[in-house]
């Protein structure tokens, strides 16, 4: 009687599924196209090409301002343009104000909903998603109609008023990202027990929020903040229709009037966005209690 070894260590006759056959004498190397791993790699490479080829092309184009050789002339022109500095500074200031406003609105709201009104969470989430389905043009026309110079609150009548209106608009546009980031952060800590522990030690709401809750979701707030920053820097519709000197309208204006500079601007804008993402990572690593935790 023969006993067949059915243990997992038993040698398997023929090629192992998914492996490439060893090239023998007189045999040519041929990838096994039936293997799912090969298709995964093909899909990955295609994805990379899809994303990076336009960027590489754009970058290459931005370097061709000088005839017959590559140069950074387009970048030099952009960076030395006083309008670039003015619009970029304006958008940076607006982004920072929007971040402050967003954090002030979102952090206490998300905290309170999680702590005291958990049944309200689906509704709040729905409201925070609305900016994704309502186009900015609808929002800005709403603003103009509600706050024009003949309305009960004529905010568009002054530059400061319009700036404030624009900041509110930006805060609305970034709401889905900011809320989700903060809410995800709150999910990682036991908000209820930490709050009660702080209360039992005599802390009021301000202390609890400022010294316990916010530091523990700082990384989430920062990721929301950087996403807000990236949105504000590239935003066009609100700024253009409210007629504010922001970076978005400047990029569009540049695109209609210059050849190489718009490509250089786009590369700069991408760099800013990626820098923001890098900063999120950096903030995560530098956050003291998180850093030690990962060791």
């Amino acid at each position: 009687m023969t006993v067949q070894d059915l243990s997992p260590r038993a040698p398997v006759a023929g090629p192992v599924p998914g492996s490439l056959p060893a090239p023998g004498p007189g045999r040519r190397f041929r990838p096994n196209l039936a293997s799912p791993k090969v298709w995964s790699w093909i899909a990955f490479v295609l994805g990379l090409l899809y994303f990076f080829l336009p960027l590489i092309g754009m970058f290459e184009f931005s370097l061709r301002a000088r005839r017959g050789e590559y140069s950074f002339d387009a970048y030099r022109n952009v960076l030395s343009d006083p309008q670039f500095v003015a619009t970029f500074s304006y958008s940076v200031v607006m982004a920072l104000c929007t971040i402050v406003l967003g954090v002030l609105i979102v952090a206490p709201t998300a905290f309170w909903v999680r702590l005291k009104l958990p049944w309200l969470r689906p509704y709040v989430e729905f409201v925070t998603l609305l900016p994704l389905v309502i186009p900015p043009i609808v929002i800005v026309f709403g603003y103009i109609r509600l706050y024009n110079t003949s309305s009960w609150l004529p905010m568009t009548g002054t530059a400061m008023g319009t700036n404030i209106l624009l900041m509110f608009g930006y805060a609305t546009l970034s709401l889905p990202y900011m809320y989700r980031a903060v809410d995800t952060g709150l999910r990682t800590i036991d908000v209820g027990t930490l709050t009660e522990a702080a209360q039992s030690l005599g802390a009021g709401w301000g202390t609890i929020l400022g010294r316990i809750i916010l530091p523990n979701v700082l990384v989430s707030i920062l990721s929301g903040a950087f996403l807000t920053f990236a949105i504000v820097i590239g935003e066009y519709v609100l700024a253009a229709l409210l007629n504010r000197p922001a970076f978005g309208p400047y990029m569009v204006w540049m695109g209609g009037n210059r050849a190489y500079e718009p490509a250089a601007l786009a590369v700069i804008a991408f760099t800013i966005t990626w820098a923001c993402m890098g900063l999120i990572q950096l903030a995560t690593r530098l956050s003291k209690h998180n850093r030690v935790e990962r060791r």
Binding site: E196, A197, Q199, S200, L201, H289
Partner: peptide, 27 residues
């Protein structure tokens, strides 16, 4: 709760993760 002068210890410890041991005790 913050006006009652009570100290409470929880089942789940509830130490503040962003503070060191000394900072927790000093809170």
């Amino acid at each position: 709760p913050n006006q009652r002068s009570i100290g409470m210890v929880f089942q789940a410890y509830a130490l503040f993760p962003n503070l060191t041991v000394a900072e927790n005790v000093a809170f």
